[in-house]
Amino acid sequence: MEQAAPQEAAGDQREIVSFRVAGQDFCIDIRYVREIRGWSPTTVLPHAPDYVVGLMNLRGNVIPVIDLSLRLGLGRSEPSQRHVIVITNDGRGTVGLLVDSVSDIMSVPCDELKQPPDVATSHAPAFLEGVFTVDEKLIRVLDLAKAVPSNRAVEE
């Protein structure tokens, strides 16, 4: 799992965006975050996996929005005005992640990344790259490549 982390020397800082999903703290590398938008109703995509909330209009581009909570096995979100969509792009295309709220942008020393604990429930560990502990709070580092299936994965 350590290989999955960007190759940085010990002592390097990693900038992350943290957010809450179903009462838990998650984060992704800030490099993958394009912008953060408030929730607005999406268009249902027929025959799509259940965790695909629908399609949204991002300045004229049609992008899919994923219910991260459902995807992580933490239950379906009931999107409201308070929900937030984190627009990400990890090189495979632009995708919106529906989350409860965005918490912070922070720098974390790379060597503090730990193996995810097994205690976490449901699917979550499979989608994690590791965890950080910041101010005694456990922040799970999301492995975008796994959490957001590529096109082909969707079709399988």
Partner: peptide
């Protein structure tokens, strides 16, 4: 607006467009 690039082929759907209110219609 083409869809296949991002989503593969979706049965019954050819493409998408954006409506006057900014919402997407298939």
């Amino acid at each position: 607006k083409g869809l296949s690039e991002n989503y593969g082929r979706i049965p019954g759907i050819a493409a998408a467009t954006i409506l006057g209110d900014g919402r997407i219609a298939l």
